[in-house]
Amino acid sequence: MNQARVAGYEVVARQDFSDVTFLLEVQHPQLARAARPGQFVIIMASEHGERIPLTIADYDCARGTVTLVIQAVGKTTREMQRDCRVGTRLVALVGPMGVPSHIGQARKVLCVGGGLGVAPVYPQARGYKESGAYVIGILGFRNRELMFWEDKFRATCDELIVCTDDGSAGIKGLVTEGIRLAITQHRDIDECVAIGPPVMMKGCAEATRSSGIRTIVSLNPVMVDGTGMCGGCRVKVGETVRFACVDGPDFDGHLVDFDDLMFRLQRYRATELAATERFNESCRMRNLTAQPVVAE
């Protein structure tokens, strides 16, 4: 019908960090100009696809691109891993959504990223650095193979602590270990930004609670439209219920009810598992039919 609907949004670069994690750079100059740290987009990979929210990992006004880092965990993301090559197009890309992160007057800041959360915490680290803050980056990965963007963070942060579960890089342990280390070395941290899986953000909020460091987390619950219309993304923050898409996605980590969030993330679990299973099956079928046919 209109141009965008037919043409879609072109993937101009792709980088695979590991078996499951990959990066897409998508052309959308207007979006690249409008994006701010902490915001997210909603994409649809195909005509029959679902709308999935992805936090903006980076944006480049000069090149007119936005960067998305994706973990292939469910049907849609695995299909994207298979199909989204340079030159292909996303059917829908809308954003930037959510309230941009408030990069305030903090002088010393922790920017904590866990797993896939390492990507979206990057614009925040850069934002704080540009505002003149002393930035301590803390990145957590399961192991060395899954690591990405260490160089990007080294170039931006004043200090960088890498944590791996197995100790294959940096210090051994979770990001909370890194936070404890940073807090003992620096008594004057004003703020902490933590992005990653809910259980990791919960840990970070606990790690900073006793020292009273303001801790901002970025929530990524189930949502459909991303414009405040469906209410699927409602989260408990203190005594109130907020919609992550328009009231967030950033909230005070010390007030967020993470257990509620984790349960609510399981809402469509059964259907999602069925879809992934069916996708795996179709991949096997595809591989089978790809074999040369011997005889009729």
């Binding site: 439209d225 469906c230 879809a275």
Partner: peptide, 29 residues
């Protein structure tokens, strides 16, 4: 906030615009 509690907007959007009723032909659960 229990699972299974949702707004009519969410139910209708999933079902109408996103074709969840035609799952798995459409991906929205």
């Amino acid at each position: 906030s229990l699972n299974g509690v949702l707004s009519a907007n969410e139910l209708l959007t999933r079902c109408n615009l996103m074709h969840a009723r035609e799952f798995p032909d459409y991906d929205t659960p």
